[in-house]
């Protein structure tokens, strides 16, 4: 097992394997997104209260889920890199940050576009909007620290530690913001009881969530390959690869 992990996590091996994996994520992403968007925008019934404008939820909610999920992935892989000194894990963490920040930004923008017809204003200091904004700042801090330290190994470890500190803090930040003020509608999907969302709305939502998830896996592979090539640019196998072009 350990041997296999070490073999797979060698950058060169990863580079070869990941090329084969990407289509397996990219094609289902495209299919699911087409089906999910069609179902969400045309098939799902309009909401009895919010009318048609609730449909932005099919982008907003999966983006918000992904923003948290990617931060956790980032912290876990940074932890793996820190503890077992696996370079590839560090590269995954570094490559994840901009994707996570983009999803966070997307969730904020779609949220505020949704807020205009619903609450009559683009921005309210509601608990979830605020904690999403703070999450965006955490991503920015990670990326800033990563780029500020010149030595690559030190930068990886230092920003990795920051990601771990951030992950400990996220629940504290979230609950303190929730207690502080709340206006946002309560969770409608993750309740343990029967979800308080219509099944015809739930299906496209879950399709979109799955599509976003697979999209992340495809993009993270591409970005990590990029990072591998950049960091190993002076190694022989990369040079040979370039000469073959």
């Amino acid at each position: 097992m350990w041997h296999w992990i070490q073999r797979f996590s060698s950058p060169k091996h990863f580079y070869v394997i990941s090329a084969k994996l990407i289509p397996w994520f990219a094609v289902p992403t495209a299919l699911l997104m087409i089906v999910g968007l069609y179902q969400g925008l045309f098939v799902a019934p309009p909401d009895y209260q919010q009318g048609e404008s609730y449909r932005i939820m099919f982008v907003h909610v999966p983006a918000a889920w992904m923003s948290l999920f990617i931060y956790v992935v980032m912290a876990v892989s940074a932890g793996i890199g820190l503890i077992w000194q696996i370079k590839l894990a560090d590269m995954v963490a570094v490559a994840s940050a901009p994707i996570g920040a983009s999803f966070t930004f997307l969730a904020l923008v779609t949220g505020s576009l949704w807020g205009k017809p619903m609450w009559g204003t683009y921005w309210v200091w509601d608990a979830r909007l605020t904690s999403e904004l703070i999450l965006l700042f955490l991503y920015f801090g990670y990326m800033a620290l990563q780029s500020a330290i010149e030595d690559q190994r030190t930068a990886d470890k230092a920003s990795g530690l920051l990601a771990i500190v951030g992950v400990v803090n996220i629940p504290i930040i979230h609950y303190s913001v929730v207690w502080w003020n709340t206006l946002h509608q309560g969770a409608t999907v993750t309740k343990f009881a029967k979800p308080s969302i219509d099944i015809h709305m739930l299906i496209p939502l879950l399709l979109m969530a799955l599509a976003f998830q697979l999209f992340y896996f495809a993009v993270i592979l591409v970005r990590t390959r990029n990072e591998v090539l950049y960091r190993e640019r002076n190694r022989r196998w990369v040079r040979e690869l370039i000469e073959q072009l």
């Binding site: 703070i134 801090g141 303190s176 913001v177 207690w179």
Partner: peptide, 16 residues
Amino acid sequence: LLSLIVLPLYIPILIF
């Protein structure tokens, strides 16, 4: 850079 890193982590303290 220090403020960028630390300020988000200070938010719960500020709130309470």
